[in-house]
Design a protein around this nucleic acid. Sequence first.
DNA 1: CGATCTTACGGGATTCGTAAACATA
DNA 2: TATGTTTACGAATCCCGTAAGATCG
Lengths: 303, 303
Amino acid sequence: MNEPDLSSRQLRAFVALAETRNFTRAAARLHLSQPAFSALIRALEEAVGARLFDRSTRHVEPTVEGALFLESAQRLLRDLSLSVADLGEHVARRRGRVALAALPALAAGWLPPLLAAFRARYPDIELDVADALSEGCVERVRAGHADFALAAVRASAPELLAQPFCSDGFHLVCPRTHALARRDTVRLRDLAGEPFIHLARTSSVRQRVESALGPGAPALRPVMELEQLSTVAGMVRAGLGITVVPALTLFHFEHPDLVTRPVDAPGLRRQIYSIRRRDRSLSIAAQALFDELLAHRPVLRET
Amino acid sequence: MNEPDLSSRQLRAFVALAETRNFTRAAARLHLSQPAFSALIRALEEAVGARLFDRSTRHVEPTVEGALFLESAQRLLRDLSLSVADLGEHVARRRGRVALAALPALAAGWLPPLLAAFRARYPDIELDVADALSEGCVERVRAGHADFALAAVRASAPELLAQPFCSDGFHLVCPRTHALARRDTVRLRDLAGEPFIHLARTSSVRQRVESALGPGAPALRPVMELEQLSTVAGMVRAGLGITVVPALTLFHFEHPDLVTRPVDAPGLRRQIYSIRRRDRSLSIAAQALFDELLAHRPVLRET
DNA sequence: CGATCTTACGGGATTCGTAAACATA
DNA sequence: TATGTTTACGAATCCCGTAAGATCG
């Protein structure tokens, strides 16, 4: 079929005329002069190829075909209005969805109050948080399952864009009774020879620690490799060794028997990136959350 | 809510861009230069208040909100297309409905073949025929139950418009053996003293006959008053009397024992009118049938 | 004759296409 | 560098409002 060009204004004019049965009043409703309104109706009739009104100078009323089209026009306008309003709801952040992937270190301590505040402010935005290790976070973004991620790897695919988000320094964790517990800060070389509890090799923390302890650095004395930080805490409390972890994970070690001390080692910082698809903007809801998180990102003192 | 002005062209442009993900090709699809097309998209984004596309010089794709709106836009365009197409069906007389009221005299003999032809030509136009006496016909039009009527009264309400449709002369009906059967035409005065079979007083035929036989006209000799013309035919065949009826009803009297002869009486004609609402045009379907009936209206010789 | 729709027309805004500038892979 | 989008700009078009004309009750 042919596809005439209609504007919503024409439909509104048509409905107004059908309802008022009076050009002058209908024109006023549209804030138009009456001749301009008349032209609008004429153009509509030409576009659809049918007379829609019987008009004399005294009487205006829809033809049979006009009455038929009136229902269509009203429905079309209502649907249009709903569609635009729905879009507006998203723009106004009253509807939408954000899928976020974050490192467990962030997801456990720093994130929850921010999410709670976000939810209070935008109660109808659906939230989907995944806590995963860095690789998993990145993969979720790449696959489109997450809008953005906060993870500790710079990138892993060309279509992704990583931007520095925050960085945190590393801290020694040792029993309160340990000799190092008396110092305010410790240096890497202070750790030489101490029994050291490592995280698994897949962990980004472990990798960062090992790369900082490059050749020439004091050798650690590994005594075990664990997966979970809470296990590490238990081991340290039991006096089986010490460890070094990023500041963001220190909440695992809040215990009377344990102390934490910043490690004074320039370059030993873990960088956390925000990761998103390069050529796809964040949805309005996702952008809102991202802005919020960025505004409240962890402030961690330099070394 | 506010109600932005959108045109179907904008929606089509939007859909084309979402589908092709390429301004140049989408512009070509709309037969527009690419900058003009670009402006169309920009205007749409401003109208709905949301960015709908992420575009770089190398990549164009809908934003999350654009993808959301795409479904709306496609549905809106489809609905619009259906509505306009439906209206077009009526204009093309492939759909519609006609309600017609006609005198039994017309409905029985003259109308059926015309309706059959109309139905063959426009098989999907719904037909609704009512046969009624003139008053009933007019009332149906007045109440909106019929689009137009063919009846023998001029008008009965100010909102109705009656236009001459056709007129038919009156004919004597008598047995073949009757003395008057030998004449080619008869005059009113020839009927004087003959036993005369009247129709009921409510019939327009009876009224017309009586008004023609005004004061000074030869007195008839009424022998009965019947409702149905077929009964009249039987009575005349049985030799109980003669009668005078309009030409259009002569099919009731086609019988070997009967003859019909024109009554040569100036002014003794029954006028039949088309009757419709004054300030409401006929629907396209009704107008089509009306035109057809008018083109084939009964041609009845002048007296 | 008064109310109301249509036509006529001049001015202003919109929209178009060409050409140049700009951006990205 | 090549492809593709945006910006710039002059010209054609469209649309609006005022005023005059036409028509019906």
